[in-house]
Amino acid sequence: MTKYLLNKFLYTVDRDPSLVERYRDDAQGTVAWWEANVANALLNGHTGEASTWQRLTDEERAALTGHDYVALFSLGAHPFLTLTLFIAMFERDHDEPLAFQKQYAARLAHFDLPYPDIAT
């Protein structure tokens, strides 16, 4: 698994409002674009250096393209990264305050301690 790359996707997309909207509207296209153009670049805008070997697994790609935060959590994605990104994407679809956060908690309620390892 590539938890680092998975978390890097969540981190970088969450910090760019245009990418949040792009990911909400076209998850498959955004994931493919990000993997081809951003995945192997250094974090925080550094240029001139890049890696060439990192790739998402098919399972990670499917979870990302399906907006499946339960699968992402089970794969070891950091829960704060998934929560903040998915709040930005889907809180607006709910009328009640904290409705999405409650849905998120309910869908993850079946996990028992110890949770999946989030170390990268």
Rank of each mutant, 00 (worst) to 15 (best):
V70L: 09
G76C: 06
H110Q: 08
P97E: 12
P97F: 02
Q28R: 12
H67K: 07
N40H: 10
L83E: 10
T120D: 09
L113C: 07
N7R: 11
L43A: 12
A77N: 02
A105V: 10
R22D: 12
P97A: 08
V31I: 07
A119P: 03
A39N: 11
K102E: 14
D16K: 05
A36V: 09
E49C: 05
L19W: 09
A109L: 03
D93S: 10
F100C: 02
L43V: 07
F90L: 02
Q54C: 10
L108M: 07
T120N: 09
W34S: 05
A50N: 12
Q54G: 00
Y69A: 09
L56D: 13
Y4V: 11
D16R: 07
A88D: 06
Q28D: 15
P116A: 03
A105N: 06
D26Y: 03
K102I: 11
A27C: 05
S51D: 14
S18L: 10
L75C: 07
R15L: 10
P17V: 15
N40V: 03
G48N: 01
I118D: 02
P79K: 02
V13M: 04
A39C: 08
T120W: 07
L64S: 05
Q101C: 09
E21L: 15
K8M: 04
F111M: 04
L19H: 06
H46S: 12
R22W: 14
P79W: 00
Q103S: 11
L83H: 14
Q101F: 01
A106G: 03
R15E: 08
A62V: 08
R22V: 00
F90N: 03
D14H: 10
I87V: 08
S18Q: 08
D25W: 01
H78Y: 00
A32E: 15
F90P: 02
T47D: 05
T65V: 13
L85E: 01
L83M: 13
Y115A: 02
E49F: 12
Q54K: 15
T47L: 13
V13T: 10
F73L: 06
G76K: 04
D117S: 10
